[in-house]
Amino acid sequence: MLAKRIIPCLDIKDGQTVKGTNFVNLRQAGDPVALGRAYSEQGADELVFLDITASHEGRKTFTHMVSKVAAQLSIPFTVGGGIHELADVERLLSAGADKISINSAALRHPSLIDEIASHFGSQVCVVAIDARLDAAGWTCYLNGGRISTGKNLFDWAREAYERGAGEILFTSMDHDGVKNGFACEALARLSESVGIPVIASGGAGSMEHFRDAFTFGHADAALAASVFHFGEIGIGALKQYLQNENINVRL
């Protein structure tokens, strides 16, 4: 039976791991390659590396980091951040990334999803969506959550799926950094809206939250950062807990 996946996310700035709370207040949390290897050894199923550097120089540093990760890690990993066009995808896949995730660029140019899927296959194309519940319902945001698009989360996820996305990575901005649990209702609805895996993100604070994302939220994978980086939840202990809760995980 297919296992539910646990995915630590590493935000990378100038070659170092950082993690924000509600997308601001960055704190340092270690060397990405060493941290990635440690997570892999603890039983992480995949890793996500997000480049939050904007500069050209920073992007080169990130690409170099991707090739080091690819050489040293034996589990799949996704990279995202700063991907605007097909050439960026090509650069990161050539450096050894298994998948790439696109967010704002896909909202601005949805056809980028079609292009990536037709050139490299759907399986490499993760569409990341930052959304928050406002008066109009669940609405997608651009640029790390600063600009509202007016686009509905479920409509956009469905469109991304139809255009050839291989996975949806959904971050609830209302839940991110608050450690009060994932947005399970929205997750469950999202899972029914698309025929591809959904990764839950934003809100992990306890082991129960992961369980709920899988049971109530029907998520295929759950992603978190600070609870792992600061050792609040150990990956091995989390997976043991999930197995005790009758959730199929890789142990």
Partner: peptide
């Protein structure tokens, strides 16, 4: 061929 919406394609992840 998915039987229900819970059967996602691609089959992606760790299986035994």
């Amino acid at each position: 061929v998915p039987r229900t919406h819970a059967d996602k394609v691609p089959h992606m992840g760790w299986n035994d």
